[in-house]
Design a protein around this nucleic acid. Structure first.
Lengths: 313, 313
DNA sequence: ATCTATCCATGCGTTTCGCGCAACAGTTCC
DNA sequence: GGAACTGTTGCGCGAAACGCATGGATAGAT
C-alpha cells in the first residue's frame, strides 16, 4: 500500500488542528473517515504519528516531521496544479512567433505591447526571418505559429488571411514620377530599378508584377536589406517598389511613395497555423489579442488593410 | 474531482514512453487502465495533454508542461517519503540529549563519535546543565532524554540505570592521607573540606555521606565549578570528594585520588526517559549505541562501572 | 461519587472507484 | 485485403472509502 494524497491531506488537517473532530468539520468529512485515513497512513509508514489518549491528540516527534513533509508534498501538488492552470489560461509560458521583419517591426509591436501588459508572466519570442525559414519554423515546431506571406500552400499548415499590403513605388524626392498621384508598373519599369535580394518574397512579387505589366524585370542593383535599397533610392540611383508595411524599415532618407497601379499588387499576409498540432494556450491568447486589433479596425499604415475575418484555409 | 497521484503517475509514464501499451507494461497494469486514468486527468484539467491518432501518441504543448509539473509533484512525493523513511530509521534528524557536564565531557564523547560516524546525517545536541535543569528539559520536552543523577523520582519520567560512579577523595599531592590506599569519610572530614556549590548533586551527596559517617559537613570553602575546587586542592587549601567521572574536569593540577570508604558512596547515573512521549527514532538509535558501549564493557575511568542492564523503573 | 459531554476507534452496510477482460475502431505494413 | 498493432469503451467484479451508529474512555461539572 502506498501513501496517497488523501491520507496526507487528512493527516495534515488533523495534525494542525490537533483534533480529529475539528479537522473533520474543516474538511467536510466524517470523523471516522479521518480516523481511518490517519491509521492507514501510520500503518503504511510503520510509525506512530499521533499520540492519542481518548481525550487529547498530540504529535509524536515523527508526527512533527511528517507534518513538515506532508505540507511540502501537498504544497508541491497545489502549486503544480496552479501553475498548470495558469499555463492553460495562457497566463504563463511562452509564445513563439515566426514572422517577417516588416511584420515584426510594424504590425506586431502594439499587439505584443498590449498582450504583455495584460499577461505579464508570458514571454513572447519573435523568430524573424525570410518567408522560407518562417514557414519551416512552423512546420518544424520551433514556432507556435507565424504571420507571413505564403508562396505556395504547404501540407500541414492552415492559413488565415490577416492583412493586405499594397505595393507602392518608392521614388527619390524630386523624381518626375513623384508628381503623379499614382504610378503604373510600366512607368516604373522604365526607370533603373533597385531590387531586394532574390530569395525575398518581395522580390518574387515585384518580378511577377513587372511580368504581368508585360515588362521584363531588370534590376539595376540588388541589395538584401530594404534599408539599403531605401538609401540607394534616396541617393538618386533609381526607383523601387515595396509593400506599404515595409516602409518604416526603409529609413529616414528623402523618399516619396506613390501607389502602384496597373495592376494594383497586394502582398497577402496570413496567420500560419500548424494544422495538426494543438496551439499552446498562450499562443491562442496571443491570436485573440491580434483579432482584437483587427476588429477594433486599428489604424494601419497607409496601403495596409485588415482582411475580412474568414474561415481557415 | 481532483488530481490524484495515481493519475499523475500514469500520465508521466505514458508521456515519457509516448505509448500507452509500453507504459502499461512498465507499470504492470492494463493498458485500458492507463487510458482511463489519462482521460480522467485531461477531463479534470480541462485540457488535452496527448494527441493520439490510433497509431501514434504525441504530447501537446500543454502535455509537455504537464509532464514537467507531474514530475515535480511525483518527485516531491517520493523525496518526502524517503526523507521520512530515513528519519524513521534514525538516519536523519536530531537527538537532543540533556546531561550533566561530567557525563557530557567524559562518558559521552566516544558514544557520540561512534554514533555520528555511523549516521552522518544525524545531529546531536547536548544540553548540559545541573541535575535540576536536566530533568526539567526532559519533562518540558526540550530534550528527548537525559543521562543524569536523579535526586527524587519525578512523575512522567522513567529511569534506566546506566553507571555507578564512586566518590574518591581528592588530595594535594603530598598530603598525609595520600599515603593510604583508601580513605574513610571520617578521616576526610577532619581536613578542611572544599565543597562544590549547594545546588549541585555532588554537594548533596557529600553532605549525605558525611552525615552517614557521623560527621557534620563543614566546608571550608565552596566553589561552583569543579575545576576551581581542583585548583584549591592542588594549592593545598584543603581536600575534597568527587565522583570518579568528574575527575577529568578537575584540571591538570598536582592532585591524587584515593577511593573513599566507610561507606563507599556511589553516584548512580540513569538514562532518564519521558514516560509518555514516544522517543524519536534518532534518539532510540542513540540509546542503542550507548547500550553497545555497555555490553562491550568498554573501558571506563577507574571508579566508574556499568550498571547491569535491567528493567526500566 | 456520579453524571454528562466529548473524543477517538470500530463494526457494518452502501456507494464509489479502479481494474482487467473483451470487443471495437482506426492505421500501418505486408 | 488481411494481419498486426494501436488506443477506446462497455461490462462486471472486487477493493476502497465513506457515513452512520455504537462503544470505550476521560475530563469537567454537579
Amino acid at each position: 500500500m502506498d501513501v496517497t494524497l488523501r491520507q496526507l491531506t487528512a493527516y495534515a488537517a488533523v495534525a494542525r488542528a490537533v483534533s480529529f473532530t475539528a479537522a473533520a468539520a474543516e474538511l467536510h468529512v466524517s470523523q471516522s473517515s479521518l480516523s481511518r485515513a490517519v491509521a492507514d497512513l501510520e500503518r503504511t509508514l510503520g510509525m506512530r504519528l499521533l499520540e492519542r489518549d481518548t481525550r487529547n491528540v498530540r504529535l509524536t516527534p515523527a508526527g512533527a516531521e511528517a507534518l513538515r513533509i506532508a505540507d511540502q508534498i501537498l504544497s508541491a501538488h497545489r502549486a503544480g496544479l496552479a501553475q498548470l492552470g495558469r499555463y492553460g489560461a495562457g497566463e504563463r509560458g511562452a509564445v513563439a512567433l515566426a514572422t517577417l521583419p516588416s511584420v515584426a517591426a510594424v504590425l506586431l509591436p502594439p499587439v505584443i505591447s498590449a498582450f504583455r501588459a495584460r499577461r505579464p508572466e508570458m514571454t513572447v519570442r519573435l523568430l524573424d526571418g525570410l518567408e522560407r525559414s518562417v514557414l519551416d519554423r512552423v512546420i518544424d515546431g520551433d514556432a507556435d505559429f507565424a504571420v507571413s506571406t505564403v508562396a505556395r500552400r504547404a501540407p500541414g499548415i492552415t492559413l488565415r488571411p490577416l492583412v493586405r499590403d499594397r505595393f507602392d513605388a518608392v521614388l527619390p524626392e524630386h523624381h518626375p514620377l513623384a508628381e503623379r498621384a499614382e504610378v503604373t508598373w510600366e512607368e516604373l519599369g522604365r526607370e533603373p530599378f533597385l531590387a531586394v535580394g532574390t530569395d525575398s518574397s518581395v522580390r518574387r512579387m515585384t518580378d511577377a508584377a513587372f511580368a504581368q505589366a508585360g515588362m521584363e524585370a531588370n534590376p539595376a542593383t540588388e541589395a538584401s536589406n530594404v534599408a539599403t535599397v531605401g538609401g540607394l533610392v534616396a541617393a538618386g540611383l533609381g526607383v523601387s517598389a515595396l509593400p506599404a508595411l515595409v516602409h518604416p524599415l526603409v529609413g529616414p532618407g528623402r523618399l516619396v511613395r506613390r501607389p502602384l497601379v496597373g495592376p494594383v499588387v497586394e502582398r497577402r499576409l496570413y496567420v500560419v497555423l500548424p494544422t495538426r498540432r494543438t496551439l499552446p494556450p498562450g499562443a491562442r491568447r496571443f491570436l485573440e489579442q491580434l483579432e482584437e486589433f483587427r476588429s477594433a479596425a486599428d489604424a494601419l499604415p497607409a496601403g495596409v488593410m485588415w482582411e475580412e475575418a474568414s474561415e481557415d484555409r
